[in-house]
């Protein structure tokens, strides 16, 4: 059930994050608004995962502030995340979804049917009774998506959802992401795959060495990149 309060827009004001004396994110200002998917691109180690964790509210900035719909409270009632390597609870596929439904406050009587529907949405029909840990990488990724959708989020964060998947599994995930985005859920995802960014992004945020180098509408970004880094990234050169 969607509460009337909203997490959007998410505003990062001059946000830095350091750990162990290392600055991982450096004075990032960013506004995430409702609409088509925002894709964070950038090489490995750029800070994409850390940025998503901040947006999820799992970690707090060491400087600056993050607000969700103008509020500073971090309780993730309206947002969900799929980690790059999602942990599978030691339950069946359906059991994993039911767990997420329970955590989201869905009454017990409605969980079984709801879990079945979510399983079908991500294309896991027929695999409901399999132990989640016995599913393939792509199936686990889709299960994690179903789990994330269980709380009917306004915002869905996806951390490299197709990394290490083959083309067929990648397509399956991307199809679900498109469906989710079309249903009105704001998707913010990371990828280091330029093709994926082109296929899914409405808005691009290029992250490099902990800083936002360039951001804007995907069409503009790919057609007329403003920075050298963006031009090189689009040209397929290695940003290091």
């Amino acid at each position: 059930m969607r509460a009337p309060v909203t997490d959007l827009p998410i505003v990062l004001e001059d946000v830095s994050f350091s750990a162990g004396g290392v600055t991982i994110l450096d004075r990032i200002s960013l506004v995430l608004v409702a609409g088509s998917p925002t894709v964070l691109i950038g090489p490995n180690g750029a800070g994409k995962t850390t940025l998503l964790r901040l947006v999820m509210g799992l970690i707090a900035p060491t400087r600056g502030r993050v607000t969700w719909g103008g509020r500073e409270q971090a309780s993730p009632t309206h947002r969900a995340i799929v980690f790059q390597r999602p942990a599978m609870l030691r339950r069946s596929a359906a059991g994993n979804i039911r767990y997420a439904l329970a955590a989201a406050g869905v009454p017990r009587a409605r969980r079984a049917a709801h879990a079945l529907a979510l399983g079908a949405l991500v294309g896991l029909t027929g695999l409901e009774r399999r132990p989640a840990r016995k599913l393939s990488g792509g199936e686990q990724q889709r299960l994690a998506l179903a789990r994330a959708l269980a709380k009917e989020p306004q915002l869905l964060l996806l951390d490299e959802p197709t990394a290490s998947l083959d083309p067929a599994a990648t397509k399956a995930i991307e199809d679900v992401i498109r469906k989710v985005a079309a249903s009105g859920i704001k998707v913010v995802m990371s990828t280091h795959d330029l093709g994926e960014a082109k296929r899914l992004a409405g808005e691009i945020v290029l992250v490099h060495r902990g800083r936002v180098i360039e951001s804007g509408a995907a069409e503009t970004f790919f057609a007329a990149p403003k920075t050298i880094e963006a031009r090189r990234f689009i040209a397929g050169e290695l940003l290091v």
Binding site: L58, F83, A87, L89, A100, A103
Partner: peptide, 16 residues
């Protein structure tokens, strides 16, 4: 160590 991020993301309380 395996579950902590997932449970935090699902907003599961200490007892849960």
């Amino acid at each position: 160590s395996e579950y902590r991020d997932e449970l935090a993301a699902m907003d599961v309380g200490p007892l849960g």
